[in-house]
Amino acid sequence: MNDDYLLNKRILLVDDEQELLDMVVSILKEAGFCQIATAKTVKDAIDLADEFQPELAILDVMLPDGDGFSLMEKRKGGYPVLFLTACGEDDDKFKGFGLGADDYVVKPFLPKELLFRIMAILRRSYKEENPLVKLHDSEIDFSRAEVIKNGEHIPLTAKEHDLLSALYRNAGRIVTIDALCEAAWGDNPFGYENSLMAHIRRIREKIELNPSQPVSLVTIKGLGYKLIVWGR
């Protein structure tokens, strides 16, 4: 999967400390981002945003002439927001997420962590058109809800689609039984463990060449399942 197209996104960075701005800019540039604008106050940020049209904003909470929360509420265009702040209190986090923030990173942070989170937000917000997901034995076309195996197009049911999407969002990582049940059956996902196993079996029949010895959708005993995507 190629995320390079995300590096062209315009990022607005707001923090009152010049040194921190410099550092984050250098981190972003090193990672390959090329369109970055910075502001030190709420007023500057609003003026700049009109012209710059950011596609992601990274905001500090405490600013000299206001706070990041109100800045976020005033934004035009509904681009995603990531808070990068020294306010690590739970209540601050809840407030940020409550207002619709996409992520919340507390200082001090590792540059890699910040980059992972930025990429995750961008990937969620700006999906590549019609990506085909390559597995070991087959391909998944999420937009058409079907699996292509040996040139044959096999349709996915709604539940299978939900489960595969949840697994794909965390491709290469374990997704717990509970998270999968929640993805397929909603907020009160208790008692669906056996149904989940049945669905997983059916998905394997569609995506695996040898469903009894799966290579793409593997079981992690007692914990959950992992989708292994080609090239990731």
Partner: peptide
Amino acid sequence: VSHDIRTPLSMIMGYASQLVD
């Protein structure tokens, strides 16, 4: 104290991480 340490520590971590690579 922990709040005030966060920003300077961010800078130490950030630049040191860049130096590692």
